Measured scan of single mutants.
Amino acid sequence: SYYEILDVPRSASADDIKKAYRRKALQWHPDKNPDNKEFAEKKFKEVAEAYEVLSDKHKREIYDR
């Protein structure tokens, strides 16, 4: 789930989600993982997609249904 990707509970606040996104984006940024760039790019995209949905109140409500 998007919550698992960002490592936050379903009850996470918008601020918690933003902090988790920043932490995970740094962790999986391809430039930070030169030895495993392809895998890092995949993870980085997953993190971005999760944040896009969970950071938008309307999209998150739909996702949580």
Score class of each variant (00 low, 15 high):
3 Y>V: 00
17 I>A: 01
37 K>L: 14
56 D>W: 01
1 S>Q: 08
63 Y>P: 02
15 D>P: 06
44 F>E: 03
42 K>P: 02
57 K>R: 13
44 F>T: 06
10 R>Y: 12
53 V>T: 11
30 P>R: 04
59 K>C: 09
41 E>L: 10
59 K>L: 14
16 D>A: 11
39 F>E: 13
50 A>R: 00
54 L>S: 01
16 D>V: 07
19 K>A: 15
10 R>N: 13
36 N>H: 09
59 K>V: 04
30 P>L: 04
13 S>N: 12
19 K>L: 12
16 D>P: 01
34 P>H: 12
29 H>A: 11
47 V>D: 00
43 K>Q: 07
44 F>K: 04
49 E>F: 06
20 A>F: 01
49 E>N: 08
31 D>N: 09
21 Y>Q: 03
11 S>P: 03
36 N>K: 10
64 D>A: 01
27 Q>L: 12
60 R>N: 03
44 F>H: 06
55 S>R: 10
64 D>F: 01
45 K>H: 11
51 Y>G: 03
14 A>P: 12
11 S>V: 06
60 R>T: 02
43 K>S: 05
1 S>W: 11
36 N>F: 08
20 A>P: 00
24 K>N: 04
36 N>T: 08
43 K>H: 07
15 D>R: 10
21 Y>G: 03
23 R>C: 13
26 L>C: 13
50 A>K: 00
5 I>G: 01
31 D>Q: 08
33 N>W: 15
61 E>C: 11
14 A>V: 13
46 E>F: 04
22 R>E: 15
59 K>I: 04
55 S>Y: 10
19 K>E: 15
51 Y>K: 01
53 V>P: 01
12 A>F: 02
48 A>F: 14
43 K>R: 13
9 P>A: 09
39 F>H: 10
37 K>I: 12
9 P>G: 09
45 K>L: 12
65 R>M: 13
3 Y>Q: 00
32 K>Y: 14
17 I>P: 01
32 K>H: 15
14 A>L: 15
28 W>M: 04
24 K>F: 06
57 K>S: 13
6 L>R: 00
61 E>Q: 09
34 P>F: 09
16 D>Q: 10
31 D>A: 10
34 P>E: 14
19 K>W: 08
7 D>Y: 03
1 S>P: 05
12 A>T: 02
18 K>H: 14
18 K>W: 13
2 Y>R: 01
56 D>E: 06
33 N>H: 15
63 Y>I: 03
22 R>Q: 15
7 D>N: 10
10 R>H: 13
24 K>Y: 05
39 F>S: 06
22 R>F: 13
21 Y>C: 06
48 A>Q: 15
56 D>H: 05
6 L>S: 00
50 A>T: 01
5 I>T: 07
4 E>S: 09
22 R>D: 15
6 L>A: 00
14 A>C: 10
18 K>R: 13
64 D>G: 02
49 E>P: 00
65 R>G: 11
47 V>H: 01
40 A>Q: 05
8 V>H: 00
40 A>Y: 09
47 V>P: 00
43 K>M: 15
22 R>K: 15
42 K>D: 07
59 K>N: 06
58 H>K: 14
2 Y>T: 01
17 I>G: 00
20 A>K: 02
62 I>T: 08
38 E>F: 08
64 D>S: 02
47 V>L: 14
35 D>H: 14
55 S>C: 06
45 K>W: 11
31 D>H: 07
35 D>K: 09
38 E>S: 12
54 L>I: 03
47 V>S: 04
14 A>H: 12
54 L>G: 01
19 K>C: 12
33 N>F: 14
60 R>F: 02
60 R>C: 03
11 S>W: 15
7 D>S: 10
11 S>Y: 14
52 E>T: 07
18 K>C: 12
44 F>M: 15
57 K>H: 10
51 Y>R: 01
32 K>E: 11
20 A>Y: 01
21 Y>K: 03
24 K>S: 05
9 P>I: 06
55 S>W: 05
63 Y>E: 03
37 K>E: 11
49 E>Y: 07
54 L>W: 01
51 Y>M: 04
60 R>I: 02
37 K>P: 14
3 Y>A: 00
36 N>E: 07
25 A>W: 15
25 A>H: 12
49 E>H: 10
33 N>E: 04
29 H>T: 12
57 K>G: 10
19 K>V: 12
1 S>N: 14
15 D>K: 12
15 D>W: 07
41 E>M: 11
15 D>A: 12
15 D>I: 10
28 W>K: 01
57 K>T: 14
37 K>R: 15
10 R>V: 12
27 Q>K: 09
12 A>W: 00
13 S>R: 05
44 F>G: 05
35 D>C: 11
62 I>N: 10
40 A>R: 06
8 V>C: 08
24 K>L: 15
28 W>A: 02
34 P>S: 12
35 D>W: 09
46 E>G: 04
15 D>C: 10
51 Y>N: 03
4 E>M: 09
52 E>K: 08
27 Q>Y: 11
46 E>H: 05
3 Y>G: 00
45 K>R: 13
7 D>R: 04
13 S>K: 06
43 K>V: 09
53 V>L: 04
52 E>Y: 13
36 N>W: 08
4 E>P: 01
7 D>T: 03
58 H>F: 09
57 K>I: 14
64 D>K: 01
29 H>L: 11
28 W>R: 01
55 S>E: 04
23 R>M: 13
47 V>C: 10
37 K>F: 05
55 S>A: 08
10 R>T: 12
23 R>A: 15
13 S>L: 05
22 R>G: 12
39 F>I: 10
14 A>G: 09
16 D>I: 06
11 S>G: 12
17 I>C: 02
37 K>Q: 12
57 K>M: 11
16 D>E: 15
49 E>V: 07
26 L>W: 10
61 E>S: 08
22 R>L: 15
44 F>R: 07
31 D>I: 10
49 E>L: 11
17 I>D: 00
41 E>Q: 11
28 W>P: 01
1 S>G: 14
60 R>A: 02
61 E>P: 04
41 E>C: 11
1 S>E: 08
16 D>G: 04
36 N>D: 09
61 E>D: 14
9 P>L: 08
18 K>Y: 15
60 R>S: 02
25 A>D: 03
28 W>T: 03
45 K>F: 09
65 R>L: 11
8 V>E: 01
13 S>Y: 03
40 A>L: 06
39 F>M: 12
52 E>W: 13
63 Y>Q: 03
14 A>I: 14
26 L>P: 03
52 E>G: 10
32 K>G: 11
7 D>F: 04
8 V>D: 00
18 K>N: 13
4 E>R: 07
63 Y>A: 03
35 D>Y: 09
11 S>C: 15
25 A>C: 14
38 E>I: 12
9 P>R: 08
24 K>E: 05
58 H>D: 13
64 D>E: 04
62 I>V: 09
30 P>K: 05
27 Q>N: 04
46 E>D: 07
51 Y>E: 02
50 A>S: 04
52 E>F: 11
14 A>F: 15
